[in-house]
Amino acid sequence: MRPLLVVVMLLSTGASNAHGQIPLLTVSGSPSAMTVSVATAGSQPNAVSDNSTTYSALTVLLAPKKITAQVNSNMPTGVTLTITLAATTGAISAGAVALDAVARDVVTNLTNTLLETKGITYRLSATVAAGVVLIASRTVTLTLTAYP
């Protein structure tokens, strides 16, 4: 019996925190549609932002995490979508990160073991070179994964 008890104790420490929770990442929903439509003469069109959504995250003790973000397909030429995640306690936000089909770090060193909810800000910008872009959508995937 002794070897069985030792194995159970060692493995259960890494599986969840003291509250029995596992690493978690959720979002409050999707942002409102964003449209670039105005410019000051002589300047590139005005960017627009949305900060209506939030994310909630936690990890387990001694298991720091990071959050990456990517879109399912690249933005149209001349159009840029950035995402900013406010950092949870002790974590580091990468600030505004331009999204593409490659997972990019947006928050690192996430160590909070209690669930925290923080804001997400999207910013859409377009140069005149983008032309008119008919309404389209992208799926943004946020991933909570091991750090470093």
């Binding site: 890494g14 599986a15 969840s16 596992i22 690493p23 978690l24 990442l25 959720t26 979002v27 929903g29 999707s30 942002p31 409102s32 549609a33 964003m34 449209t35 670039v36 439509s37 105005v38 410019a39 000051t40 003469a41 069109p45 959504t53 994310y55 387990v60 298991a63 879109v71 159009v79 979508l81 997400i120 999207y122 859409l124 377009a126 005149v128 983008a130 032309g131 008119v132 872009v133 008919l134 309404i135 389209a136 959508s137 992208r138 799926t139 943004v140 995937t141 946020l142 991933t143 909570l144 994964t145 091991a146």
Partner: peptide, 20 residues
């Protein structure tokens, strides 16, 4: 328990004609 967690959002956008 140690596998990655994911969440998704749908971002809808457009660029209209701008002439000024």
């Amino acid at each position: 328990a140690a596998s990655a967690q994911t969440a998704t959002q749908t971002v809808t956008f457009a660029v209209t004609a701008v002439n000024t």
